[in-house]
Each structure stands twice: as C-alpha cells, then as structure tokens.
Computed example of a mutant assay.
Amino acid sequence: MQLIETIKHYQPYNEQEEKDREEIIRRLESKENLLTRENKSAHLTASAWVVNKEKTKVLMAYHNIYDSWAWLGGHVDGEEDLLKVALKEVKEESGIEAFPVSADIFSLEILTVDGHVKNGEYVSSHLHLNVTYLLEADENAAIRNKEDENKAVAWFGLDEALLKSSEPWFVEHIYQKLNDKLRKMKDI
C-alpha cells in the first residue's frame, strides 16, 4: 500500500493525531517533496517506541542535540517504507535488533524542530512529519550508543521514561500517549 493510503487508513487516537494526520495528508497530496531533507521546511521522519517483550520497559537514547532522553528514529532520506526506516534507525542508534509488534502505524505526529547546529552547520527550524511504529526488542541484548547522535542508550520502565525526558512537550503529548496506547493494547 502506498504511504499516503496507509496514512489515510490510519485511525487517529486523539485530536492531536487527527489534526496532524490531516496536515500530513494535505502535504503528501500537494506533491511536496517530503522524502528528503532538501525540503528545508518539512520532511518525513520515522520513529520507534521500542519495548521489551513484556511491554513494561522502553528503550531510549540520550540525544546529543536535544540534551535529553528520547525515542529512537530519524529522517527517511528518500525511503518510502517508513517501517524499514524505523527498524534501521533503531539498529544504527542502539546496536539492537528490533522487530515490529505490528506493521501498522502506532502513532502520527508533527514535531517542531528548533534551529540547531549539526556537523558544524546550522539547520533552520523546521517540521518533522513523523510516523511512529511499535517495535519489540530483547532487553538483555547488548546495546551501544552512536556517538555522533547520542551519549547513551538505556531501558526504562514506562513511567520512568517520562521522568527521564527533559522535553516537557514530548512527555505530555507524545510519550504519555504512546504509553497510554501501549497499556490499552496490553488490556486487550
């Protein structure tokens, strides 16, 4: 299924996802180049909420640019298979092999990225049109950080992960939502 069709079929979890889904679809339908960073104002990214088998812990990385514990993920850089991107990013950023709990989208969000310096070059503020997947990994597998992107990688309990992040908007609007969705899945 084509990316735009997959996003159109995604059932938003809350108002934030509903509004962000509408905007992502609008931008995809406009034929704007969203697959590469050549679009300086907005581009697609794929993130992963990586949990252990029991779904009681989440894997997070201490992100260099944001100076905070955060989920794993990155730019799609021309790849239309966003699940493939999420899996690749987890492997690159943590050294761990993760597997999809489902091939379905777990969450959608539009994220603001403040201007920052990366690799010695200024990157202007822009939007990440983000698709998140729920992945599972062995919490006992060896992990490592990716020095040019993060200082550390570690497993945290679901609530502990929220306390570790120093990005209030992400905690309140994204990470809490992901944990809520995960807990509802466990109740099924």
Rank of each mutant, 00 (worst) to 15 (best):
E80N: 12
K40C: 03
H128C: 02
L59F: 08
A161F: 04
S47V: 01
N64P: 01
H116P: 01
T36A: 03
K151T: 11
G78S: 07
E54D: 11
V51M: 04
E80L: 07
N39H: 09
S94K: 08
Y122R: 12
E149Q: 14
H116K: 02
E167M: 11
G120C: 05
W69R: 01
F99G: 03
E93D: 12
E160Q: 10
I65L: 11
V131W: 00
H116S: 06
H43P: 02
K57Y: 08
V131C: 00
K53D: 13
K53I: 10
S30Y: 04
N130A: 13
R37E: 11
F156C: 08
L35I: 03
G157R: 04
H43I: 03
L158F: 10
K88T: 15
A98W: 10
K84L: 11
K151G: 09
V90T: 14
A48P: 04
H126F: 05
L162H: 01
K164A: 15
D77I: 06
L111I: 10
I143E: 07
A154L: 09
E160C: 07
H63Q: 13
E89A: 04
K151E: 13
S47K: 01
V50M: 02
E139N: 14
R26N: 09
N145W: 02
A137G: 06
I65V: 15
N52D: 15
E80Q: 14
A61W: 00
D77Y: 14
S94V: 09
A70I: 10
L44M: 07
W71I: 09
E167A: 09
T112I: 06
Y122C: 04
T56A: 07
E149L: 12
T112V: 09
G78C: 08
